[in-house]
Design a protein around this nucleic acid. Sequence first.
DNA 1: CGATCGCTGCGTATGCGATACGCTAATTAG
DNA 2: CTAATTAGCGTATCGCATACGCAGCGATCG
Lengths: 226, 226
Amino acid sequence: MGTGDYELLWGEADRPARGRPAGLSRERIVAEAVAIADTEGLQKVSMKHLAERLGSGVMSLYRHVPGKDELVLLMYDSLMAGPLPLPDADTWRETLRLWGFGVRELFTTHPWAIVVGTAERPMGPGEAGWVDAVIGRLTAVGMPPELALVSVLTVDCFVLGAVRPELGGGGEADLFQFLADPAMRARFPNLAPLASSESDAAMGDYFAFGLERVLDGLEHHIETSA
Amino acid sequence: MGTGDYELLWGEADRPARGRPAGLSRERIVAEAVAIADTEGLQKVSMKHLAERLGSGVMSLYRHVPGKDELVLLMYDSLMAGPLPLPDADTWRETLRLWGFGVRELFTTHPWAIVVGTAERPMGPGEAGWVDAVIGRLTAVGMPPELALVSVLTVDCFVLGAVRPELGGGGEADLFQFLADPAMRARFPNLAPLASSESDAAMGDYFAFGLERVLDGLEHHIETSA
DNA sequence: CGATCGCTGCGTATGCGATACGCTAATTAG
DNA sequence: CTAATTAGCGTATCGCATACGCAGCGATCG
C-alpha cells in the first residue's frame, strides 16, 4: 500500500453511452467487500470470495476496481461517504466530544478500518468531506479554523490509538494476563499492582477519561492564549 | 493476526544439549527481518527473501519461528527489547513529554511498526518491560500508579495516531494536495483556507502542539482532583 | 435492418507467498 | 560405534492476485 497515485479515489465515473451495460458496479463491489470485512475480517476479503458473494467471476471485478490495494482504500473511504456521525452542539467542546465518540463507534463497528486508517494512505473524498464538515461546525461555534484543524487531528489521533486496545473485549485485562504468573509479577513490579480487578474497573471508562484530558488540554490552550 | 496463543513471545528457549548445533537463531532471523522492513517495507518481508538474506533455505526458518504472523509479532516486540528511550526527568510532565518524543522517534525509524502496533495483538515481554519502566519512573516522581498507567496509555494513543500522517514527508501538505484543484476548494470550503503555506508552517510543530495539549489535560485533571 | 463498435463478463494461465512433509546431515550420550 | 536428537532444507501443495484474450450484449451507423 504505497503512496501511489490512486486517483481512482477522486475520479468521476461517467457512464459510457455505448457498449454493454454493467451488471456490477464499483459501489456494489465495495459495499460487499465491507460487509465481508465486517463479519469475517479483512483477511477474508479476497477477490475470489468477493466474486462468489456477488455471483460473478473473479476477473469481472477488475473491470471496476484496479486491484485489491485500491479496493481497500475504496472500502475505507466508503465508510466516510455516509452521513456525518455528529449531532449538532453549541460549543466546540461538546462538538469535539461527540465527534470523538462518533469516530470511536465507527471504528468499533468496523475494526478492520483501524489498520487501514493507520497505514500510510492518501485521503479520499469521503474523509475530506467529514473533516471539512467538522471544521465547519467548529468554526460555526467560534473556533478559529487553524485551531479547529489541529484540534480535530488531535482528537482523531487519540481516538484511533485508543480504540484498538478496547476491541480485545476484556479491556486491559487480556493484555496483561501474563501477570497471572507470579514470576512475571516479580519481573514487572510496577505493572503487578495494576492487574487487580479494581484497577480493571478504573480502566472501564478509559476512553472517556483520555478524551476528556485531551479536551481539557485544548481548553487550557484556548484560555491561556486568548 | 488473531488473538491466538502466541506464547512463543514469552517462551524461554534453553539450548538443547544434544543434536546438531544451530547455525540460525531466532534473534538473527528477527533482526534481519526488521532490517528488511526498515529498508524495503513490511511487504517485502517474505520467508523467501528473508532466507536469501540469511543465506539459508526457506524452510530452515520454520525451525526457529512458528510462522510469519508470529515472526511479525517478534519483530515488533524486538523493537522494545532495547534500552528504554527515556532520559531521567524530575517531573511527571517532563517524563511523559520525553516518553512521547522517544516513542515518536521509534515509530518514525520503523514505520512498519505503526501498522503492527495498531493491530490487535498480544503484549510481549519487551513492550511490558517498557511500560513497567515508564510507570516506575512516573511513580518515582510522585504520580499514583493508576494515574500513571492511564497517562501513559493516553500519551501512547496520541503518539501512535499522530506519527502516521507525519510520514508522508511533506506534513499535511501531501494529504491535502487535492485542494490544488479549484473545484475541490469549492467542494470543501472549510478546508480550502487551510491549504495555504502559512497554515502548513503551523502544522510543522503539530506533534509537539498536540502532545502539550494532552499533557495540559492531564495536569488539569491532577490539579482539580487533588 | 444488419454490420460494427465499444464495453462488460469471465475462463485460463502465471507467478508468488506460506507452509506441511519427510529426508539428510551433524552432533553427542552411552 | 550406534542410537538418539536436533538442524537444514528440497519438494509439493494450496491460496491468492492478476495479465491476457476471447465471447456476449446493446447501441450506433450505413
